[in-house]
Design a protein around this nucleic acid. Structure first.
Lengths: 274, 274
DNA sequence: CGTAGGCTTGATTCTTGTCAACCGCGGTGG
DNA sequence: CCACCGCGGTTGACAAGAATCAAGCCTACG
C-alpha cells in the first residue's frame, strides 16, 4: 500500500490501494467522488427490490446490507456493505433490482453521477480497473459465503463471518489489531448466516467460553485469531488483498510513462506472460 | 430475441441476445470466438485453485462447475457452468484462483486470447456490454444461491435449483418445454445444495411421489412447473432475461447510427432517465 | 416508571447427517 | 461367457445440529 493511502481517510482509496498504488491524481478523483452526501437512518432501505436501478453510490460511513425477504417474512442477508464499498457500478444494465439494500446503522453515502463513472473509465483507467477488481472481490466473497452456508456448521459460519469482517474493516483502515466495531444484532447475524437468533446466541456463548472472542457494546475482539481461523477454515486469499499481478502492474507502469492526458492505452497485452 | 439468435447454434450468442439484439457482425465475432477447441474428460479440473489465471474461456459443450474442497474432503459446488457460459473474463486481475473449475461431463471449451477480449471492448461495444451483463447475471445467481442455502429447506433447494437449470438451459436453446438433460449425480446435487446425497435422494423420492418431476437416465422433466416454483419461491426475475433497459437500447441505437468504425462512443448518458 | 428491543436460557421437536447395508447395472478381465 | 467390481441409487436405524416455543432478564429510552 502507498504511504498516502495509509494515511488517507478515504476508505475507498484505502481499499483500492490494496490492488494498485494510486497516484496523487487518483486520490483527488476519489476524494471528489466521495463529496456528495446523503444520509439514511438505520433500518431504512437505500434501494428497494423491484426498483429501477438509479445511481451508483459509495458507502462512506456506517454499515448496510444487501438482502431479500421471503414470503413468510424470513430474511436472508447476502452481503454486508462497509465504508468504501461501491454499490451497483454496473447494475444499470438491469431493468429492476432483484434485491434490496438496507441501512443497518445510520449511514452516509455518496451518490456518483453516471457521467463521472463513464468519465473515469476513459480518464482514470487505474481507478476504473481498481473498481473492477473490487467487483471481482465482491463476487469472490459471495462464493465464499456459499461455501460457508453449504458446508460449515454454526460455529464455523460465525467464526468465518467475523474473520471476514475484521479483515475487511482493516483493509479500509477501520479498527485495529483484532478489534472492530460490530454494530450488528444477533438476529442480523442470524439472517446473514442462515441460522436463527437463538442459535447464534448459543454459538457466541460457546466461542466466548473458550476465550476465542469478546463481543459487547457493539465491539468485537478476536482473542485467538488462529483458533478462529482454524474453526472457520478461514483463508484470506479470496479477498485478494495482496496487490495486482505483475502483468497489471507493468501495464500501469507503461501507462504512466506514455501518459499524454488523452487516456490512450498502451498496446502491450495485460496478461501475465512475459 | 432476434430471429438470427433463435436459430443460432451458438449458445453464447443465444444468451447475449436475451440482453440486446445482436447484429450480423456480432454473430460473426461470437462465432469466431467459439472456434478454438479444447476438450476435458469428466471429473478433470479445467482450472485448479491456486493456479495463476491464464485464459478466458467459453464452455461450448457439456457441464462444469466452480467448486472448493474443504480440508475434510467435503466439497461445495458454487455454480454450474452451462454451454455459453464465460469463465473469468476479468479474473486476470487476481494473482491466483481462489477456487477450482471442474468438468462434470466430458466438456468442450474455447479459450479466448487476451487480445481478442481487449479488441472486443473497443470494436464491439455491444458484445462487450453484453458480457458485462452476463457477469452481473452470474453475480445475481450467486446471491440467489445464498438465499437458497440460507433460508430454504431440502425440498425448496432442490426445486429451486432445478427450476434455475431449466430456465438457463432454455435461455441458451437447450432442452424443450420443461425437459432438460441433467447429467448430475445425486451427490453432485448434494454438493451444490449443501446437503448429503442420502438426503437429496429422499427429497427427490418425495418430489417424484407428488408427480412434480421425473428424473431418470440423466433426463429431467418438470411435470408441474407452477407447483415447483411455489415450493422454491422461484422467480426468474433475477436472471434478468427480459432485455436491456430502455436507456441501454437507446444508447446502442445511437451507436448504430453514428457508427464509423472507430468505435467512438455516443456521448449521451446511458442512464434510464428520459 | 413503563416499555420495547435485544439478549439469554430451557424444554422440546424436526430436519438433516451418519452409518450401514443392499440393489442394479455397466464395464472389465479371466 | 461369466464372475467380479465399483459406482450410483435406495432404504432403514439412529444421532446430531438447529429450529421452535416460551419465558425471563437487562438496559436504553420515552
Amino acid at each position: 500500500m502507498g504511504e498516502e493511502a495509509e494515511h488517507s481517510a478515504n476508505p475507498l482509496a484505502r481499499k483500492l490501494a490494496h490492488f494498485v498504488p494510486l497516484a496523487e491524481a487518483d486520490f483527488r478523483v476519489l476524494d471528489h467522488l466521495m463529496e456528495p452526501d446523503e444520509r439514511f437512518e438505520a433500518d431504512r432501505d437505500i434501494v428497494a427490490e423491484g426498483q429501477v436501478p438509479r445511481s451508483v453510490f459509495v458507502l462512506k460511513e456506517g454499515m448496510a446490507c444487501r438482502y431479500r425477504t421471503l414470503s413468510d417474512g424470513r430474511r436472508q442477508i447476502m452481503t454486508f456493505l462497509l465504508p468504501g464499498d461501491l454499490c451497483d457500478l454496473h447494475v444499470f444494465l438491469f431493468k429492476a433490482m432483484d434485491h434490496s439494500i438496507g441501512a443497518l446503522t445510520p449511514v452516509r453515502i455518496a451518490a456518483i453521477a453516471q457521467t463521472d463513472v463513464l468519465d473515469m473509465t476513459v480518464r482514470h483507467p487505474r481507478i476504473s480497473v481498481g473498481l473492477w477488481w473490487s467487483t471481482m472481490q465482491e463476487e469472490a466473497m459471495l462464493r465464499e459465503r456459499i461455501v460457508s452456508l453449504g458446508r460449515r456448521d454454526g460455529r464455523g459460519r460465525v467464526a468465518y463471518l467475523l474473520c471476514e469482517l475484521v479483515w475487511r474493516q482493516q483493509a479500509v483502515g477501520q479498527g485495529q489489531n483484532d478489534t472492530i466495531a460490530l454494530p450488528l444484532t444477533q438476529s442480523e447475524l442470524a439472517d446473514a448466516l442462515g441460522l436463527t437468533a437463538v442459535h447464534i446466541n448459543r454459538v457466541l456463548q460457546d466461542l466466548r467460553q473458550q476465550n476465542l472472542l469478546t463481543l459487547e457494546q457493539r465491539r468485537l475482539v478476536l482473542l485467538d485469531t488462529n483458533a478462529l481461523a482454524r474453526i472457520a477454515e478461514f483463508n484470506a486469499d479470496y479477498l485478494h488483498l495482496g496487490g495486482a499481478p505483475e502483468g497489471i502492474k507493468r501495464y500501469f507502469d507503461q501507462l504512466e510513462r506514455t501518459r499524454d492526458g488523452s487516456g490512450s492505452l498502451p498496446s502491450e497485452s495485460v496478461s501475465g506472460q512475459t
